[in-house]
Design a protein around this nucleic acid. Sequence first.
RNA 1: CGGGGUGUAGCUCAGGUGGCAGAGCGUUGGCUUUGGGAGCCAAAGGCCGCAGGUUCAAGUCCUGCCACCCCGACCA
Length: 570
Amino acid sequence: MRWSRYFWHTSKEEPADAEAPSHKLLLKGGFVKQVSAGIYEFTPPGLRVLRKIENIIRKEMDRSGAQELLLSVLNPAELWKETGRWELYGRELFTLKDRNGREYCLGPTHEEEITDLVRSYINSYRQLPLLLYQIQVKFRDEKRPRFGLIRGREFIMKDAYSFDTDELSAMISYETMKFAYDRIFKKLRLNTLMVEASVGAIGGISSHEFVVLTDYGEARVAYCESCVYSANGEIVALGKGKEEEEEPRELQKVYTPSMDTIEKLSSFLGVPARKIMKAVLYLVNGREPVMFLIRGDRSVDENKVEMVLGTENFRLAEDSELWETLRTRKGFLGPFNLPDGIRVYWDNSLYGVKNMVAALNEPDYHYINVNVGRDLSYGDFVDVCQVEEGDPCPKCEAPLKTGKGLELGHIFLLGTRYSEPMRAYYRDPQGHDRPMIMGCYGIGISRCISAIVEQHHDDRGIKWPTVVAPFELDIVCVNTSDQQQREVAEKLYMLSQELGIETIYDDRDESPGFKFADADLCGFPYRIVVGKKVKEGKVELQDRHTGERQDVEIERALELLKGMIEEDKR
RNA sequence: CGGGGUGUAGCUCAGGUGGCAGAGCGUUGGCUUUGGGAGCCAAAGGCCGCAGGUUCAAGUCCUGCCACCCCGACCA
């Protein structure tokens, strides 16, 4: 490709609206263009990267026995009403009506459609198992799209679905996908972590996420470096600690004016946060108050709260509701003097803490030296504590590491969540009708582009791994008005194509610095600079990843490169 | 959905207390230049987010709306 004719437009300015490195670089490098919040267009080079990722995924899916198909984007409401998700999915579902008033949604995921397709053809155990996938655009009306391709409202996804006769068979499909995912992310040169994930409210059997560790992720993950344990933070079980050995001191009511945060209280009383009892009040279904008590230096993980409460319909009480329920203000909530009818849960972190500071639901006062047994009794213990660095590994007790994870893949053993309500049944050898056991397996493809950039860039630009680079080689002609340089560059360009190297030839009439800066920004793994040294029969070969440069004879350059590219693709 | 911020040229931004619409980059034409986002000359380019209001006069002040970004909540 001749750059002078190619639709590729980079920018010298830092994009104003971007924060994450991948977002900045993809915009600045002209790979994507924003249309609206969370909606992006791919330019020709951007599409080249996307297609390469797709093809790597396609190859591995095919290899594991999955069959590609293409489902519809515009989906009738009826199917979604069959599974109840028309209502359950909520406002994230993009919906619309046709001219006759019939309702549709733009598919955010395709369990309903695939199940409908499969049930219409599959009716015998002899036809199972079955593994189908598609690479398709998805729509989710996210509350807050962000970080470019990382969280979009329209995005490209590979989604696969498995159909099996029984759970054991389904587990095999699940494991097959797990291995395929491992291979895919390795090929994409993504350093991912497989973490155990929540099976969620729909009661699946097993679930894993494949995440990359980055500040621009949305999940908190915990992993253990002593054993193999790794999990989404929301499912890391945290137990009770050891009981403190400390003589109980005398209970006292202390005036603590406006000390309404743990920090203020801690410094005011000279008591460490871990000795302060924190209380938070939630309202379930907007009415029923539930109090959680937790150690002052820890935070509540609302995903864990959801599991305790068995519903996602809860929220923190507002100031006015605190007053109505407890006659107190924020910062002065505690387990004392509670009215009837308030459920109270103790987080495991509070177990065994002696001489605590606790509130008594009276503004501007706290108790100090509260001791369980003497001043109050424990209630029901639960685990709602957000995992933190250094917490004990649930498997081996070693201190856990934590980080933010960007979820690239999620595999899920669904069971009969969709096959049962949609009556996707097969006839077993005994002649009974049984629901198929399903699994679903997603990879956020457009998000992978961002993840790759997050993991492969420097302050000058992107460093694409060769397997996904828009072009493997950039031939830079330093001085396009120099006859000799021009001829050599042209010749190398022609030859590189014959050799099957994906080449962009920077024949633009621009200054050398301009072209070098673009080359760094756009991240070609290799560059041949055709400059002054052509007089000595040499060109310069540069490696974007290592930064190495070497002068090589013109005739040898492409052979050498070909070998390096082959090596990268292995 | 709560909090914060920003909307002015294709891009990045400047335009105290109301008074002719600006710069750099990019674009077009010309000359020079050619190993790290070149120089000089000339030119084109605007619904100042939208709507209303105050005023002799609004990019600027007031009201409402919209869009985008960031933090939080949310994220089968």
